[in-house]
Amino acid sequence: MHKHQKRPWTFYVLATLFTLFVIFLYGPMISIFILSFQGPTGGLVFPLTDPGFHWFGALFGQARTGDVGGAFGRTLPLALAVMVATVVISVAAGLAFRRRFFGSSVLFYTALASLIMPGLVLSIGILVAFQFLGLPTRWYSSAFGAHLSWTLPFGLLIMFAVLSRLDPAYEEAAYDLGATRWQTLTQVVVPIVLPGIIAVSLFGFTLSYDEFPRSWLTTGPQNTLPIEIYTMTTTVTSPALYALGTVTTIISFLAIGLALGSIGYIQHRRRNKKSF
């Protein structure tokens, strides 16, 4: 209806602001992607000389850059485990929060408090707790828990938003037709809220995969990738650092693409089905 209206002048001002912001957001990232293809004699800044894959090879080849391969081998399984646990726990809790139960407010605000808890403080607490119990800190135990305390509030908030829009009539219809609680959950509720579950997975995976402050004191003797990168920023002064940045960012982008792509695909299919 207002398709033919002239755009106000503020549109052009704000469109410029938005464009500049996007350049500000992605420009630096793009510059290190380019610099990671620096030749063997190239430096940390432009110009790009003799471009190639030299520093990507150096990343996994030399001992000088630390145990990058090993760090990948720990960070990926950790992120996947955190993702699965985040989905299961958030969906279950999201379902619980549809009704008021004793302690629901306390639990909800504790989860929110987790969101504003400084990561370093949590890191100290978990380290001391493990020492207190006589347990060693490991990436698969203490860091796993530390990451969950960061991903779960996001998971819970997404499930809150998604489940509040779920019409209870669907479940009632399923019960009326004789479905059990489990059947209703797996065959009615989960398929409907699937896009939300994918979003929770995306948060679970990427937040764990990139987490630094909460990992700082909780990973134990074997580093995860963000800690490896942090150490490299002080010790490695070659474009290998940029190559590592490029590799990790590509993995993040793959996860984001996969998640957003499948959400988009599901929504698209739903729209098409509704049309007849």
Binding site: A92, A93, L95, F97, R99, G103, M117, L148, L152, L156
Partner: peptide, 19 residues
């Protein structure tokens, strides 16, 4: 609801409140 919320409560207790 208590069973559904229990895993969240346990994780938040072990890795937030207790630490």
């Amino acid at each position: 609801p208590y069973l559904q919320a229990a895993p969240l409560a346990i994780v938040l207790f072990l890795f937030l409140a207790a630490p």
